[in-house]
Amino acid sequence: MNNTGSQDFGESVEGRPSKISWLRYLRGLFSDTTTAFAIIFLMLIFISTVAAEVVAPYDPIKTNLRMRNMPPLTPAVEDGSFPHVLGTDPLGRDILSRLIYGARVSLLVGLSSALVSGTLGTILGLLAGYYRGIVDDLIMRLVDFQMGFPFLLLALLVLLALGPGFWSVIFVLAIVRWMVYARQARGMTLAYRETPFIDAARVLGCSDARIIFRHLLPNMASPLLILGTLEVAGLILGEAALSFLGFGLQPPSASWGLMISGGRQYLSSAWWLATIPGFAIFFTALSLNMLASSLRSITDPLHRERWLMKGSD
């Protein structure tokens, strides 16, 4: 027996299923054509968001009144400049560049509100499932109430009280969606709290906080992350709807939602103004949704084999 840190209890560890490396997961995901497309598209969006200054061919707020409402594929005014591949808007601003900078706003709103609502919802769900009783009742009644309430209406109501703006939008989107995580986290906590490994932790004298954060939470990470992926897509759409109705972000910020609503009045004269940013949202949300559904089946032991077998041949 070796005494170098790890203890051997004389039990065979061979029976444990081997841990599947994340690389095999990744290969499994890429073996599916649509999922591969989704991942590549999301990576492209992400890179251009981070490096907007480098990638965008034009300054997104520089107006050029000689180049108003130019259709896609219009050559640039100056020789040698990048053509306006996606056209220009009513102030002559390059749409591709605005799209790239707009992605920054839309994704930031989607990701940060998903993060806030995910943290809040997970903690409340864990507490409800772990302590049961009155805490559970209170939290779950609130969840039931919010599940049946149109989230846009609640968001608009809170925005009316708070006033519009970037941080209000993130706050509002976070508080209108926390309950989906709470429901999921509570369900999983209820399932795990009666299992032997939690009993064992309790017998060893772990505190409630340690059981919740060290033993329960890690087991819930992947379903919650998948839910979060889905939610980011929904929140990007939610931000667009709020901005369109005039209660979300205000111009001159350029989110994708604002770009569509800005193009509404030019629908019949310059169709590309509203059409192009709409496609940007659609493909981003679709990719997120497809990725989430692939992740769900690849992390599910019942469906996993089909994916991993394909990836390893």
Partner: peptide, 18 residues
């Protein structure tokens, strides 16, 4: 089906109008 939950409703409305 995934398209249904990925589409901005007011954009779909505008595209149908167009």
């Amino acid at each position: 089906a995934l398209g249904g939950v990925s589409i901005v409703e007011f954009w779909l409305a505008l595209m149908l109008i167009l």
